[in-house]
Nucleic acid binder design. Structure first.
Lengths: 160, 160
DNA sequence: ACATGTCATTTGCAAATGCAATTATTGTCT
DNA sequence: AGACAATAATTGCATTTGCAAATGACATGT
């Protein structure tokens, strides 16, 4: 028998939201929101990203991210420069100030995660992570199948 | 070395958002949003809930949920009745119409999840789920520890 | 019984979000 | 080269969100 509370999307959302919320509050004192932290940490990991790539990496909707990057630029945390060779794209980078802040926050994130999972064998956690990564990858390939209904609707709408 | 993309909150959020997004689109044709589905499925699983309990169960912020329940009531999916013996709380229930819609959507959710995880041994998935449940439970107990900084701030503010 | 405190929900309001349309640039076809 | 399509990012606008304040109801102490 089906139970929402035993379904995977529900369980993922619940833990994800809760952890995000706790971490949010942990870093609020630095004037940094969770999406901001994610953007900074993503840029710290892979610099010189285009907006679309950063959106994909952080799972932040692109227009939201555009404004977020604007705000971060205003605060002097990132630069956003049009490329000379392809001026419709933009390269986003951490400024020294942004990098310093990221490097201040990352240890907090590490500690947070350590505390959150300290009751579990590290094998369990690494298994968990690899399954999560695999599921994420597999979602791309099943997307068409899941959306069969939508595709039909879209097609009908397009014809009109 | 730290990588955002290998951190647990990030990975959870990424898979959760992606799955939620896909499922959202899958049920959009029924005029139902994802939070609405969650509320209905939660009530289907445990009926006669108070607003606060339903909020805890669905991880939806309580004022958001209050409005969502209002909308669902307007659509005839749920009832919201003040209790006679304790009129400050409210009991929320599915209407027959709401129940019927829930029972139409649940098989879709089941199918969605089956497709999403079909490439993985079911052992892996059940392990995944039990770790997720345990982590969630453990978060309550570590909350104070994670928030030590905030607590200090709050205490200071209260004294003022 | 009254005042004060606590609990559950709702609402006001400002900020955040996301879709669709717009702008700006590059790519392609003839 | 010129027209048209495609790509990338931004912005307009309506909706959604969440915090904090307000409301309404019960609980407790005197």
């Amino acid at each position: 028998m089906y139970r929402l509370t035993n379904s995977l999307p529900y369980m993922l959302n619940r833990v994800g939201v809760r952890m995000g919320d706790l971490f949010s509050r942990r870093i609020a004192g630095y004037g940094v929101t969770l999406p901001m932290y994610r953007a900074m940490a993503a840029l710290w990991e892979v610099g010189d990203q285009r907006l679309g790539d950063l959106a994909a990496m952080t799972t932040i909707e692109i227009s939201t991210l555009s404004r977020l990057v604007g705000e971060m630029k205003r605060r002097g945390l990132v630069t956003r420069t049009r490329l000379k060779d392809n001026a419709r794209t933009v390269a986003i980078n951490l400024t020294p100030k942004g990098r310093a802040l990221a490097e201040e926050l990352i240890p907090i994130a590490v500690h947070f995660e350590n505390v959150a999972v300290r009751n579990f064998p590290s094998k369990n956690i690494s298994d968990l992570k690899s399954v999560l990564a695999e599921i994420y990858d597999s979602l791309n390939s099943i997307e068409p199948e899941i959306e069969e209904v939508n595709k039909a609707r879209k097609a009908a709408r397009t014809k009109t």
